[in-house]
Design a protein around this nucleic acid. Structure first.
Length: 814
DNA sequence: AGCACGCCGACT
DNA sequence: GTCGGCGTGCTC
């Protein structure tokens, strides 16, 4: 038997299956989806079996055998292997990249080379004429085996000498494929099968061995295996008395794999299904019926914030579990808060696995193994949880479906919604796309035959949407208010402080970050390697580039005109915090941004403090806009609504509308009524007006018209091709060739080819960037043509090291 | 990607 | 004449 293997070498030339023989001893183990170790050229690497064959047409002398199978159970299902192949064609990435993204990073191979002395070197006390060689031999001898990297660190210039020593059979080299992280193992103490034996052992025991007696007695009361550490803690004994019993063969010690439990300390109180409102009931029935019939169907669930979407999710999941099928729930990374997880855990208990980026590699791996080993039936996680290796999926829920983070920014540049659609077809499952502000694409599709539109237009318990004040910041400036708080926001903050109620203030930093400008000459301090202004970090007093990490010290004079009128512009969260404390002495502020939430568990810590009313204001970037639900919050302020609006992207209006609507929904979700203040320089823009009136439909109508006029999605699809190189001329030339290549073919599915033009970020890490945008009608023809065009540029790419990145259906045009 | 092979310039 | 620089091509 033969196996087709995709090897772990991400390059164009190796992006195809290689055939290997399956040795007799591995017949039982090699399956489609197995992870295997194979020799590839001179080295040993890992690969994935994607096909099994009776015959191979590869030359018998060339073909090698599979060396090992790396897991007890194949980590991928046939369905996922097939999906990876589809992804590689759709998103134009290497197949291995698509396979890897489906697995936890713990299973990514770590290749290690070990160096040992050969037996003859050892036995014959080999002494070289070369001093370095002797030192190397001595070093290795003292450690038995040494990792190649360690050896090279110790002897930096000796790589050739070492190579020669290996060739001269003085040293031997062994290769190893290791997982990044492996299953956590613990020692368990196991009593004999026949517990009554313990009584006899007790009699045999010496009178002085009190502790040992105590241990035996313990097992008479608890005749099960127990963790060694747990046992010695409970009985307050040292492990030596346990060992003594093990040595007598009365007890046994064995190792078992356990799961690291990130929720160990948590107690989840069981929650029960809530009574539905009439609206919820109607929506639930529509979905539940399709699940009952085990049909494949897509739903858009359009529900305003606070309309009780989550309860509908919970009960449809229950429906799916009743059928003995599994469910995947996707939530954007930032709203995957402990609160959110708790709602699922308390309903479904141990049947839930959680996958998010704050877990350690090991914890993530364990959650994944629970899915693989069928220990859980529900997985809730961020984007990549869509690849959960379930085999019987009945339901996939994508909450906040409009979020751009469902599109992966690096290869493979997949969109989770698209993967969900593919998987739902394979499993005959239902997909629910939920949002208060559906993306234009989804909204448009929900009016076609391929998707059903469901809506929850009112908030539960008859709560109304909060009134929104739109403040024109230009007017404020005219009236002499130069602070970052409008007068009304100022008054309302004061009011809430007096009433001891809470506030959420949102500062969207992107595109508005703290740049440094000279007021005399207008010079903006920017990165010498990228086309972007540097950001000022107060805590380290450095200016830093967010793209390449370049940093320089704070300047007190302008580097261009030497004037001292250099000023730190823009509004970072740090600066807002400072102003708050100076305007409102004694105000307690919790600031949540990348600086304060990188530490593990800090996110949770801040939110708990806020919930416990240890602070008056929660100030933060996007992450405060999502999913949070605090009863005492009665004021939401958006410091600057325009930051997204000014981005050079056709989705700018949509993103602004969504952000404003989401954040407005944070206020007054409980008994206390809420209020929202939006500060903006564009108070007349339709996205601001619609958001302030909570009017999704009117926004949608206007925006759809705009898109139709400019010919943008949902009226067409896009492929963004970005070229980057140090040499700007070469870049433009190659871009032209590419664009002509596409145009010459005159495919009827290609609507338009724009560019090449400079990218919005026109230089990054010393490389200039140009881009082409293709508008097309969907289907494979255009994607295949782009692939062909890139292949035709292969010579140039190889010779000049020009880079081409392709983004099919991009979320951002930058 | 990484590794071997092979073809040229700088040295014992 | 050989050592070692990097371009070229292949990996079942």
């Amino acid at each position: 038997m033969y196996a087709r293997v995709i090897v772990d070498v991400p390059s164009k030339q190796t992006n195809r299956p290689f055939d290997y023989k399956v040795p007799l001893s591995l017949f039982e183990w090699v399956e489609i989806g197995s992870r295997v170790a194979v020799r590839f050229g001179q080295r040993m690497i890992q690969g994935f079996v994607v096909e099994l064959l009776e015959e191979s047409d590869v030359d018998d002398r060339k073909i090698k055998s599979i060396e090992h199978v790396l897991d007890l159970q194949p980590p991928l299902t046939q369905e996922l292997v097939k999906l990876a192949k589809w992804m590689s064609r759709k998103y134009l990435c290497n197949e291995i990249t698509a396979l890897q993204v489906m697995l936890p990073s713990a299973l990514k191979a770590k290749y290690e080379k070990y160096i040992k002395l050969t037996d003859s070197t050892y036995e014959n006390e080999f002494v070289s004429k070369n001093e370095i060689e002797n030192e190397i031999i001595h070093f290795i001898k003292s450690k038995q085996t040494v990792e190649m990297n360690e050896l090279l660190n110790r002897f930096p210039n000796a790589s050739l000498t070492i190579k020669k020593m290996i060739l001269g059979e003085i040293l031997t080299e062994t290769q190893n494929i290791k997982n990044r992280v492996s299953a956590k193992k613990v020692l368990m103490v196991k009593p004999p099968q026949d517990i009554s034996l313990l009584e006899e052992y007790k009699k045999e025991l010496s009178k002085k061995a009190h502790k040992q007696l105590e241990i035996l007695q313990f097992f008479l009361n608890h005749p099960n295996s127990i963790q060694l550490s747990e046992l010695s803690k409970r009985l307050n004994t040292s492990s030596s008395s346990i060992k003594a019993l093990v040595n007598k063969k009365w007890l046994q010690i064995e190792t078992t794999e356990i799961f690291r439990d990130p929720f160990q300390k948590h107690k989840f109180i069981k929650s029960h299904p809530l009574e539905f409102t009439e609206e919820q009931e109607k929506v639930y029935q529509s979905i539940s019926q399709i699940i009952q019939e085990r049909k494949q169907r897509l739903f858009l669930l359009h529900g305003v914030t606070g309309s009780g979407k989550t309860e509908v999710y919970l009960q449809t999941i229950q429906k799916c579990l009743n059928q003995n099928r599994e469910a995947i729930v996707l939530v954007p990374e930032i709203s995957l808060t402990p609160q959110m997880v708790e709602r699922f855990k308390s309903r479904f208990g141990d049947l839930v696995a959680v996958l998010h980026s704050r877990l350690s590699q090991g914890e993530r791996y364990d959650e994944w193994r629970k899915i693989q080993q069928k220990k859980v039936k529900v997985v809730i996680g961020a984007r990549s949880a869509i690849f959960a290796p379930f085999t019987n999926i009945g339901l996939i829920i994508i909450d906040e479906e409009h979020e751009a983070s469902y599109k992966q920014q690096d290869n493979p540049k997949y969109h989770a919604i698209e993967i969900a659609k593919k998987r739902s077809v394979a499993h005959q499952a239902v997909v629910i796309l939920g949002s208060a502000t559906p993306s234009l694409e989804t909204y448009y599709e929900s009016h076609q035959a391929s998707m059903d539109y469901l809506s929850l237009p009112t908030r539960v318990a008859g709560r109304v949407m909060p009134p929104v004040h739109v403040v024109d910041m230009r007017e404020e400036l005219k009236e002499g208010n130069r602070t970052m708080f409008s007068r009304i926001l100022h008054t309302l903050i004061e009011d809430r402080l007096n009433k001891k109620e809470q506030m959420v203030l949102l500062l969207n930093r992107r595109g508005y970050s703290t740049f440094v400008m000279c007021r005399s000459c207008g010079h903006v301090v920017s990165c010498p390697h990228c086309d972007i202004s540097l950001t000022y970090h107060m805590n380290t007093q450095h200016l830093r580039c967010h793209y390449c990490g370049y940093a320089e010290r704070e300047n007190h004079t302008c580097p261009s005109c030497l004037s001292e009128h250099i000023r730190y512009f823009g509004t970072g969260t740090q600066k807002v915090e400072e102003s708050l404390t100076s305007f409102f002495p004694g105000i307690r502020v919790i600031r949540m941004d990348v600086d304060t939430t990188t530490e593990k568990g800090s996110h949770e810590k801040w939110l708990n403090q806020f919930r416990d009313q240890k602070a008056d204001v929660l100030l933060g970037t996007q992450m405060v806009a999502k999913g949070l639900d605090f009863p005492k919050v009665t004021l939401v302020g958006v410091i600057a609504a325009d930051t997204v609006l000014n981005l050079p992207d056709f989705r700018a209006s949509e993103k602004t509308f969504q952000l404003l609507t989401q954040v407005s929904g944070r206020a007054g979700r409980h008994e206390l009524p809420g209020e929202v203040v939006i500060q903006t320089y564009n108070p007349d823009h339709y996205s601001v007006i619609s958001a302030s009136q909570h009017d999704y439909l009117s926004f949608m109508r206007t925006e759809l018209q705009t898109r139709k006029k400019g010919f943008y999605p949902p009226y067409c699809k896009l492929i963004l091709i970005t070229f980057s190189h140090e040499n700007i001329n070469l870049l433009v030339r190659t871009g032209e060739i590419f664009s002509k290549y596409i145009k010459r073919e005159q495919l009827p599915t290609v609507i338009d080819v724009l560019g090449p033009v400079a990218s919005p970020i026109s230089r990054k890490k010393d490389r200039y960037r140009f881009q082409c945008l293709i508008k097309y009608r969907g289907g494979w023809e255009t994607i295949n043509l782009v692939h062909k065009a890139v292949v035709s540029l292969e010579e140039t790419i190889k010779q000049t090291k020009l880079q081409i990145s392709i983004d099919v259906d991009p979320q951002m045009l930058m």
